[in-house]
Design a protein around this nucleic acid. Sequence first.
DNA 1: AGTCCACCGGGGGACT
DNA 2: AGTCCCCCGGTGGACC
Lengths: 339, 339
Amino acid sequence: MPFTYSIEATRNLATTERCIQDIRNAPVRNRSTQFQLAQQNMLAYTFGEVIPGFASAGINGMNYRDVIGRPVENAVTEGTHFFRDDFRVDSNAKAKVAGDIFEIVSSAVMWNCAARWNSLMVGEGWRSQPRYSRPTLSPSPRRQVAVLNLPRSFDWVSLLVPESQEVIEEFRAGLRKDGLGLPTSTPDLAVVVLPEEFQNDEMWREEIAGLTRPNQILLSGAYQRLQGRVQPGEISLAVAFKRSLRSDRLYQPLYEANVMQLLLEGKLGAPKVEFEVHTLAPEGTNAFVTYEAASLYGLAEGRSAVHRAIRELYVPPTAADLARRFFAFLNERMELVNG
Amino acid sequence: MPFTYSIEATRNLATTERCIQDIRNAPVRNRSTQFQLAQQNMLAYTFGEVIPGFASAGINGMNYRDVIGRPVENAVTEGTHFFRDDFRVDSNAKAKVAGDIFEIVSSAVMWNCAARWNSLMVGEGWRSQPRYSRPTLSPSPRRQVAVLNLPRSFDWVSLLVPESQEVIEEFRAGLRKDGLGLPTSTPDLAVVVLPEEFQNDEMWREEIAGLTRPNQILLSGAYQRLQGRVQPGEISLAVAFKRSLRSDRLYQPLYEANVMQLLLEGKLGAPKVEFEVHTLAPEGTNAFVTYEAASLYGLAEGRSAVHRAIRELYVPPTAADLARRFFAFLNERMELVNG
DNA sequence: AGTCCACCGGGGGACT
DNA sequence: AGTCCCCCGGTGGACC
């Protein structure tokens, strides 16, 4: 399972493990798709033994856009190898898969950061390979975190402890009388304080070696373990991943950040909700301006401590930069948690 | 310029007027586009003598999705005629053009509605062809409206009179001190009260006969005439057009409606801002739920008159339905304007 | 010629 | 097998 395409590795794959699935004889109803980009196989192929930022110096310091582009590149090489001139995938297929890969790989990088951080927090010291500077915050098992890659269709409110969900439910019940609502959806990823009952579990301190299918399932299913167990102030960071930007595609995170701030800060007394957006291709400067928008709830309340809805639009140059930045964030933000 | 593809009509077009432009020998830098869907030519071809809702009964009552799909259909027919197997356009090209056509044609329907409405308002009586039921509001020249199809990159604040822009600017100046902002963008269309200085102009009462290029320019440039001349309470309706929906593509209108409500209702004392979304393919019911969201500004203020940010997600069955609904809206909303 | 803007439909996977 | 979810890149035109 090489990061760099290998004809030998490809040859050894069972057809069900290949990156390209030929569905010309088993078409999906109402679609003309001939070949599918098997996203999970692609991740296992290219990142089966590699988590960027926790791999070789070459990969850790490689342009992150190129790293994220590699699975599609490898898949296209495979498809061309097996199907020659017949091979074709729609640009929308590549777009969909590239977007998911950016999200899943970045989540894996942050998962490993969290594992390393947690290991420091329980007093195991600071792992040295690959080298990142040691955080300065004084270690405490209560300052461990969980990185949750949230699934499609998720509702971040379901992470909260029942009492907090109840507060939100009552608020909504009041709105419903007037035919109103305040539906919540989700960021792509949430970093939360690891609940007390998990603070001795080793799994939260184990760095994964690659995105094999079992590891994919571990990461994508992790959120289920924490549903109903997070205090409002323990949602430490929310992230939206967008491989590239368009001016019309900026608003789901901006709106959701506003709603989270209204509910968590306004109704549940949580500290500032940190919501950021990651991209590899901002395409101009307009997005940075859009994301200077003040959080509407704070504005309306006329509070003194008004802040942006989106804390930052971040363009990771390399996986190592992403990791460094996340460590720095944890070092600062986790000070809020009593050690 | 037929609504139904005509080989004769196509044959008579100069190559610059054709719906398909062959750019294989003049490629756009960094693009692989071979044939362009000349959107403005397509509108002139299919709708050059037709404004749905103001045309024959067959077109007025035709499934609006099919009406809106016709320009691309005709263009593909033309392209296949001239270029046979060489002809290909990316689905993203069709997507872009179909979206713009939905916006421009719907704006034209509403433009003609406004013309008919205005004619009634200045005492010229109610035009009878095609037949729509006569509004009941007592006519007044001050109750005329302008339908503005707003361009890309627009800022709706620029419509407002200088005093109101000044209020917003001061509010923003306060935010800027904290590194914050509250940028505004735009709905696709705004219906505003026709300013006094235009209330005798005939152009606002003239129904257009079709989307010839000059008429396209008239409609798309109309907003320039009203910039700086609209009172905050005179933005009667804002519309976002989305030919089809996806759950991630709902939020620009939702967010912008919230910002408009904060600024117009909250800072400028305007009555309820009516912002709606039109689509031809909602794809499930989720969007209807998302758009039940209460306006965040009203919520935070704890005002009594909280309302939805988006008043309605509307799926026009036919152009005639769209026209009828707009007349009904005007009949109700324009009562707010002193006659 | 170059840059920016905002359009949306074809998607792989989760779930039923 | 059917439905839903949320991914984004290729676009025609405006403006420079």
